[in-house]
Amino acid sequence: MCLGVPGKITDIYEAEGLKMGRVDFGGTQREACLAYVPEAIVGDYTVIHVGFAISLLSEEEANATLDTLREMVNIEEEIGPEK
């Protein structure tokens, strides 16, 4: 229940007074409540927990993390593997 999954918002609408949306998880579509990500727009990636979006994923931060790690790999290649 805590293993939230990232998905892409494909549609946004209102139902029973709540901001809702359709979210695509690599081919599987699900409805989710978007009330906690009021700034969300179609195309955003979000983490869904028990049917609720709890956070929008930041592309900038994602790239920054990966860049740092890839840099580490490059340095490793330059200096050669350990031992």
Binding site: A35, Y36, V37, E61
Partner: peptide, 14 residues
């Protein structure tokens, strides 16, 4: 170490 999903303040509306 999970910057793409987490901010220091968290999700205020939630």
């Amino acid at each position: 170490a999970y910057g793409r999903a987490v901010t220091y303040e968290g999700n205020r509306p939630a």
